[in-house]
């Protein structure tokens, strides 16, 4: 059967865009719609509410749930209620394996459920669930909350870069060929998949250890500057020297190449032309700038 025939047979295809009228509730339907909405609000509350509020929510179970075959209504509700935290914690565990390791499974579970209570998913995708997690950690009472905040920030950025759009990189050859006389007005823009982050703790190393199932060190303050990048759809990150971070930060924030180099050599006079040449060759190879 030809594809086009099938599409044209679908009689519902009338409007290219949704019309407001199509979404409006008919007057005689409004009460029924409201009743359905109340049912849904009740079930959602039973499934997601904190334990303190469960008894109150469950009190209306006989009004809503059929008393029938096999399991009693409360047990049936508990199937849904039991799956909800599993789904939330599993999703956060995927995006924040380092934080999960640092907190341990029980504390992580409890903390994630507190987080979800304050920042429930409002999106069709769970990929956005963790976007407030670093800030939530910063408000916590954890002894190592500054370390955990850094770690969560790194992990959130890694998760976000994973889904960023692919943009053609500036090749090492093209980077090498940039004529010095144009450096005064040359902007090197980062690809959406390149991010610079500065931490008070060596969280990249911590995460490496966790990812490789090695015992990570106890958190101790030691600044770490990290470049996250994606090359060939593979996620990578490197720890940068202070000077390298300094010039990349200038470039990523929109400073012209000549100005960025000038600022670098004034702050780090020990950096020579060979260092710069080596760095830019490496950055070109990593494809961190846009073509």
């Amino acid at each position: 059967m030809a594809e086009r025939e099938v599409v044209s047979n679908a009689k519902a295809i009338v409007l290219p865009q949704p019309s407001p009228a199509a979404l409006a509730v008919a007057p005689d339907m409004a009460a029924a719609e409201q009743s359905l909405r109340e049912q849904q609000a009740w079930l959602q509350n039973v499934v997601t509410c904190v334990p303190d509020r469960l008894d109150q929510a469950m009190a209306r179970t006989p009004d809503y749930i059929k008393q029938g075959y096999g399991l009693d209504p409360e047990s049936r509700l508990w199937i849904y209620r039991g799956m909800f935290p599993m789904r939330m914690v599993e999703s956060m565990q995927v995006d924040f394996p380092g934080v999960a390791y640092a907190l341990g499974p029980d504390v992580f579970h409890e903390f994630v459920m507190s987080y979800v209570e304050e920042h429930p998913s409002s999106s069709w995708t769970l990929n956005h669930l963790g976007q407030h997690f670093p800030a939530f950690i910063a408000k916590s009472n954890f002894r190592y909350k500054n370390f955990l905040h850094d770690l969560a920030t790194l992990e959130l950025n890694l998760a976000q870069v994973f889904d960023e759009p692919e943009v053609t990189p500036l090749t090492p050859e093209a980077l090498q060929a940039l004529p010095p006389q144009e450096w005064d007005r040359l902007l090197l823009r980062p690809r959406p998949t390149s991010r610079l982050l500065k931490f008070a703790y060596p969280v990249s190393h911590f995460l490496f250890q966790v990812d490789n199932q090695l015992e990570p060190p106890r958190p101790a303050r030691n600044p770490q500057r990290v470049l996250i990048m994606r090359k060939g759809y593979q996620m990578n990150r490197v720890v940068l020297p202070e000077a390298g971070f300094f010039i990349l930060k200038d470039l990523f924030s929109g400073k012209k190449l000549a100005q960025a180099i000038d600022r670098l050599v004034r702050k780090f006079p020990q950096i020579g032309a060979e260092d710069l040449q080596r760095w830019f060759a490496q950055w070109g190879d990593w494809g961190i700038f846009q073509a």
Binding site: Q44, F84, S91, W124, L126
Partner: peptide
């Protein structure tokens, strides 16, 4: 909010009309 679970619809006339209206909008 999104629970990310597939929660059951009441199998009522009202629910039917509600879903049918939305299916038409979505297909359009």
């Amino acid at each position: 909010r999104n629970t990310h679970d597939l929660l059951p619809m009441p199998l009522t006339q009202e629910s039917f009309e509600h879903v049918a209206r939305r299916v038409k909008v979505i297909q359009d």
